[in-house]
Design a protein around this nucleic acid. Sequence first.
DNA 1: TTTTAACTACCACGATGGTGGTACGCTTCC
DNA 2: GGAAGCGTACCACCATCGTGGTAGTTAAAA
Lengths: 207, 207
Amino acid sequence: MSDQIRVFSVDDHPLLREGIAALVNNQPDMTLVAEAATGAEALERFKQHVPDVTLMDLRLPDMSGIDILIAIRTEFPEARIIMLTTFEGDVEIHRALQAGARGYVLKNMPPSQLLDVIRQVHAGKKRIPPEIASQLAEHMTDESLTEREVEVLRQVADGNRNRDIAKNLFISEETVKVHIKHIMEKLGATDRTQAVAIGVRRGIIQL
Amino acid sequence: MSDQIRVFSVDDHPLLREGIAALVNNQPDMTLVAEAATGAEALERFKQHVPDVTLMDLRLPDMSGIDILIAIRTEFPEARIIMLTTFEGDVEIHRALQAGARGYVLKNMPPSQLLDVIRQVHAGKKRIPPEIASQLAEHMTDESLTEREVEVLRQVADGNRNRDIAKNLFISEETVKVHIKHIMEKLGATDRTQAVAIGVRRGIIQL
DNA sequence: TTTTAACTACCACGATGGTGGTACGCTTCC
DNA sequence: GGAAGCGTACCACCATCGTGGTAGTTAAAA
């Protein structure tokens, strides 16, 4: 029948795609129309099939799921995309929603919840499970790091001294100190090491 | 038929278990006899079914997959257990093999490879895919951290100053310094922050 | 039983990091 | 045309960290 929800699954874990395929195709009102394992594949297949709902992994081998989301939505602003991830960092969630994701589901949630989100999103709603929403709310009032600050934090995580960071970013050592001070203030860290730890936990930087 | 490989799957991601179930039950020589989502469940179900091969996730909500592996193998030394994980830290791999894992497979590997490992392990062999083996070989010569050093590294990652670490662990600040010096030497880090980053990447500590 | 490894402890010194304050050019937003 | 935020820069001061060396105790291994 033609009124089924046409689902597209993007994930680099074949086993997980298999699970999604089994789950979705078992629903009377859904059918899986395509799969992709990389960002490049995802873009290509999306244009081919123009699915109703896309399930997108946050981390893919070639590019970030969020970048794919943005790429798809510049060409197809109506695309309904759900982020599906193991990851709980509030920054990633925030960025995904900012970029136009319609849902955000963790991979360890029960399949029924995923199906629910797929149906809701297909119906034009946004759907964020309460666990995620509260995660997000916890840091709503926090100031977020600027691009430059994130750049500096990455350098710190790589074990660079202020002097080296200054050289790498073509700024003075004093400026690096200022950035790090702001980073620590915003993240509530007492030193650079804790700043890195918090940054990783919140998904601001990756190791 | 009774000569099928009886497989047991332990993972807290229902979607992934679904994928494994579909995959395994599609093989003529295998059948999935049980599933578990937590460590407690895993122990209980194992005793019930005594499967031929167990697929074990490394990270479960209640306990580490390695601890479950150890628990099972103290009662069933013949248990054939394959670790199945997204994770690539060499320390986890090493600990798992040390504890008696017969295989170590990443979740992003092709299903055919997983099936291969299941069959090989069932046949009594050990099976470590080359990607993993090389991962492991890279750090073969590295000295590993002592328990105390890991403890100190955790404290460092939490943003504690040497003085605080000393108080928390009931040792002198000078001793903390010695530990950190050794940690940095062993990990090849230039400062505490990089030590934390490397420790996380290699799976020595979690954030 | 000697030896080794791990954990503990102290000292002194130089290097690095974090704090507080001030300041200027630029863009963006009322 | 201010105001606000960002990125840049400098200074001075104190705190903390990292390095070098020495050394005692204990437990495990050879």
